[in-house]
């Protein structure tokens, strides 16, 4: 019969599911965010055993299995270790809004960092051809800061004419 060959409508139930959250920051991440907000300072914590920095700061050194109790301020400048030029427009899970593409993400070894602890953030750059490993960048802080990692607005490339007091730990 004719009815048997037709595919029945497959109903799809569309639901938006969200649960508001309140995340505690705790003493370690909390200090990092407080320093960002109040003093525009990038504070890494430090393992007392192996001396590596942790950025963002975390309670424990995963390598040595001890509390990372030390703190050090790192300068807001460094060199690009790795980068991603993103063309795929995905949603920002914090806002639900689709991101504008392309945008550039970079992992930056801030000057003087011990171990693998690059700071990960957006890079504000017009010309994508300028984005390379080793390029020197600096942190641009947000004017209004709220104690989140968005208090860092993004990195920007340091132009040669404007590089006062570039750090000594730059990659050779």
């Amino acid at each position: 019969m004719a009815e048997e060959t037709s595919v029945p409508e497959r109903i799809v139930s569309r639901q938006v599911l969200a649960i508001p959250q309140r995340f505690s920051t705790g003493p370690v991440m909390g200090r990092f965010l407080r320093e960002l907000r109040d003093h525009k300072r990038i504070m890494a914590n430090k393992c007392p055993k192996c001396g590596r920095h942790q950025l963002p700061p975390r309670e424990v050194c995963a390598v040595c299995h001890v509390e990372a109790t030390g703190w050090e301020e790192l300068p807001p400048e460094g060199a690009i270790r790795d980068f991603d030029v993103v063309y795929y427009a995905s949603p920002d899970p914090l806002t639900g809004e689709t991101r504008q593409v392309p945008y550039v993400l970079c992992w930056v070894d801030l000057d003087g960092t011990q171990g693998d602890a690059p700071l990960w953030h957006l890079l504000n750059v017009e010309n994508l051809a300028e984005v390379r490993r080793g390029v020197r960048v600096r942190v641009v802080f947000a004017d209004e800061r709220h104690g989140t990692t968005e208090d860092i607005r993004h990195f920007e490339i340091i132009r040669e004419e404007a590089s006062p007091g570039a750090g000594t730990g730059a990659e050779s």
């Binding site: 991603d84 030029v85 899970p93 993400l105 990960w120 953030h121």
Partner: peptide, 19 residues
């Protein structure tokens, strides 16, 4: 992307995509 720590990284991560 929600695998990133809620306090850092969620505004940056693009799922499992990286170049």
């Amino acid at each position: 992307t929600n695998m990133a720590d809620p306090l850092w990284g969620r505004s940056l991560q693009t799922g499992a995509l990286t170049g």
